[in-house]
Design a protein around this nucleic acid. Structure first.
Lengths: 198, 198
DNA sequence: CGTTGAGTTCAACAGATGATGAGTTTCGTG
DNA sequence: CACGAAACTCATCATCTGTTGAACTCAACG
């Protein structure tokens, strides 16, 4: 079985080049507006090769999104210090991620989620099952309050990311991260641990 | 002068029908993804008629956005009660607008601003010159702090609108408005009148 | 009536897009 | 070496896009 002759699949890094170009394009223009031709162009590759590797534009998008920060690794760090100051730590970590290569994927996901229903579902599920659930699982609050607290936090953080990286409204767009941490941290803290409307 | 013969322009409401269809389409799909053909279709009209009335897709978009809430009318109402409770009043008014017909235009503007540079500029200028400036002009705070306070508020409010009307994350998406007012009002209040990082 | 001009439609162009399938090159293995 | 499979390219299709210009309809005016 499995006669393995022929050229080995351990191919060079053109596959990664395509993924990089795809992430950049999706981040800059969103899913619909980013064209496979343009992606292939900046990757120095024939458009058909993209299909050869990834099959369809949808699957290319999925592949390009497939190295976000692993929430299972980063969330515990944020929670490590206990409930005191968790708001500021969360905002600080959140801001840091957007400046990393994973942030490109995040911007791509956010941009795409706005005009494309299935990418919106993707973002929603990522937020709920990957981030909020992990954070709130380890937080000492009433179980019935978790969803509201979680989505309130999401409200503030997504708004922050939108203003800073998509709409680029000044001075938030180029503000020093620590300034934002001090300003917004208490908000997140209150949403997580403060009193809530009934 | 002005020899006026021929069919009078006192035409029926097909022009308004086009604008309604355009607002709906832009709100649902964003500027790029909304097609003139689809708009003409739901308006029961030939696509060429859209161009006859509005010239180009850009101008159609501008015309469709041209009946937002007049900020010059709504802002004073929010400010009327003084600084106490202005946070809650702002959130309440903000939420109300999105459920009105003008909210459709707002969603359209937000959706479009994400994947289209010139509509993003439009949204940015609307936020800064029409809303934030008016609100902060009448607020008793240090002039140097205005931009930061303003964009922090924008951060929270845009995030709220995004989560409630675009991403539709539960339970924020279908929460009772007053619940959100009580939860988010204090945040806005603090951004406007509370202490700030230096 | 008959001319005028706005309301409206038809047909078509030029460009871009995602996708396909056949073909060519390149290289590891037997 | 020779063969097979993967990496890669070319040409092309069908579709959709915004936009244009010529045509037709028809109510109002002289």
């Amino acid at each position: 079985m499995a006669r393995r002759t022929g050229r080995r699949p351990g191919n060079p890094d053109t596959r990664e080049a395509i993924l990089d170009a795809a992430r950049a394009a999706f981040a800059e223009r969103g899913f619909d507006a980013a064209s496979i031709r343009a992606i292939a162009g900046t990757a120095g590759v024939d458009p058909a090769l993209v299909h050869h590797y990834f099959g369809s534009k949808d699957q290319l998008f999925l592949a390009a999104m497939n190295f976000p920060v692993d929430p299972g690794e980063v969330v515990p760090k944020v929670l490590a210090g206990g409930q005191d100051g968790i708001g500021e730590r969360l905002v600080r970590t959140f801001l840091g991620i957007w400046d990393s290569p994973a942030g490109t994927a995040g911007i791509a996901l956010m941009r795409s989620a706005v005009s494309n229903e299935w990418t919106a579902r993707l973002l929603r599920e990522f937020i709920t099952t990957q981030v909020l659930r992990r954070v709130l699982d380890q937080l000492d609050v009433d179980l019935a309050e978790l969803p509201l607290r979680g989505s309130l936090v999401a409200t503030q953080l997504i708004g922050l990311a939108m203003m800073r990286h998509v709409i680029r409204l000044e001075p938030v767009a180029s503000a020093d991260p620590e300034t934002l941490v001090v300003a917004i941290g208490p908000t997140v803290q209150r949403y997580l641990t403060g009193p809530l409307p009934t």
